[in-house]
């Protein structure tokens, strides 16, 4: 046998070393895998724990009174007193998030269009994209401070309008990001076809590009709406909160997150229960809007 393999020069020791190495590599691989599964399970457990707590404590406090009454002081120790609810906060939240989305969306849409259709590769476009990304992750309480200085201070007091403006600033970068992403997915041949028909560029953008990207743009608006529904810190500094139903934009206005914050820290068990009901409402709203947005986006794909 003329093989180059000589058993006497290939000691069994090396085979053993190779096997040990293989076992060690497999062991490390398995340990890392267990650690990763563990991390994922822990992450899901936190989500489950939050949802479980919300459902258990929120549903037990959620009833018609909570949805149809304004704030009342604690009834702790005296069941004859009228129980309060969150109607003022629900209405205040709807008004402020509605106006915030209505102001922020067109601006965000235009900025996103500018970045995707007009500013490809330009210096100004780079700057706008960078600033919009910074605003996207900037601490929201700073936006509250900004609106306080800009609106609350000159107007002499907290107001629902200031709250809506603060929320609008948070909406803009979210809409910018999704609008630009969705518009840049549209093939250039589509644009060329429109321009070749003699249409001006603005008609191309509005009638063709926006329509082609519609579901993506709507997703962005929904995500922005979901995001500001849960914002607390900027509202604390701008619309401050209120204990009665109010639709006066120039006075302080209640909102669900702020009402949750104030009642959860009140120390009275009955008010804390109402806070849990509010927390459940906010989370259900935010998560369902998120899921709708996701479904819309998936349909597109």
């Amino acid at each position: 046998m003329s093989t180059t393999f000589d058993p006497s020069t290939a000691p069994a020791k090396d085979m053993a070393a190779a096997r040990a190495l293989g076992q060690r590599r497999r062991l490390v691989d398995r340990l890392v895998r267990y650690a990763c599964v563990f991390a994922t399970v822990i992450g899901l457990l936190f989500l489950a724990s939050i949802l479980f707590t919300l459902v258990v404590r929120g549903f037990s406090a959620l009833d018609l009174t909570t949805l149809t009454h304004e704030f009342e002081p604690t009834t702790y120790g005296d069941d004859t007193l009228p129980r309060g609810g969150l109607l003022h906060a629900i209405l205040g939240s709807l008004i402020q998030t509605g106006i915030g989305t209505a102001i922020g969306t067109p601006i965000g849409l235009l900025v996103g269009t500018y970045l995707a259709e007009y500013a490809r590769g330009s210096k100004l476009g780079e700057a706008v994209r960078f600033v919009s990304d910074v605003l996207l992750s900037a601490p929201s309480i700073l936006i509250g401070l900004f609106i306080y200085q800009l609106v609350v201070l000159p107007m002499g007091g907290f107001s629902g309008l200031a709250g809506a403006l603060a929320l609008a600033i948070i909406v803009i970068p979210v809409v910018v990001r999704t609008t630009e992403d969705m518009l840049s997915l549209i093939p250039n041949t589509l644009r060329e076809a429109v321009v070749a028909l003699g249409a001006p560029k603005w008609k191309m953008v509005i009638l063709v590009c926006w329509r082609a990207a519609l579901s993506g743009i709507v997703t962005g608006i929904l995500l922005a709406f979901a995001r500001i529904t849960g914002e607390t810190a900027p509202l604390l500094l701008t619309s401050f909160g209120n204990n009665v139903v109010s639709n006066n934009l120039f006075r302080s206005m209640a909102s669900l997150p702020v009402a949750i914050y104030q009642q959860a820290n009140s120390g009275f068990p009955d008010l804390i229960d109402i806070a849990w009901a509010g927390a459940l409402l906010v989370t259900l709203g935010v998560l369902s809007v998120n899921i709708i947005a996701r479904v819309l986006l998936r349909k597109r794909k």
Binding site: I107, V111, Y114, L124, V128, I172, V176, I206
Partner: peptide, 26 residues
């Protein structure tokens, strides 16, 4: 075309202005 382009560019400049105004007012 000009109007729409400036509308978009104006919105972009507004975003820059917002960040500048945040720094300035703080």
């Amino acid at each position: 075309d000009k109007l729409f382009e400036w509308l978009c560019r104006g919105a972009g400049l507004l975003v820059l202005a917002i960040l500048g105004a945040i720094i300035l007012t703080l």
